[in-house]
Amino acid sequence: MKLLVNGKPVEAPAGSMVSAAVALAGAWLYRRSVTGEPRGPLCGMGICFECRVTIGGKPHQRSCQIPCAEGMEVRTDE
């Protein structure tokens, strides 16, 4: 399955979550906190909201709960 993470093409195995695609793209910073700290996934089960990314232009999406889909465009904070 091919996705774009911050504009970079990534191949993610079928059944994997967007959180994995972000890591496969070499990124570890998923979001910046409200005071600008770098953050990545914590709980892996949809509870902590640390792994939020923008998917298809929609902000605040929990990457650990959303399966990868062909052509998905994912953005992390810088």
Partner: peptide, 17 residues
């Protein structure tokens, strides 16, 4: 980043991390 829950890292790994 990369400090995770124990179950958290396992869940993420099972999801393809």
């Amino acid at each position: 980043p990369n400090v995770m829950g124990a179950g958290g890292l396992q869940a993420l790994a099972k999801s393809g991390l």
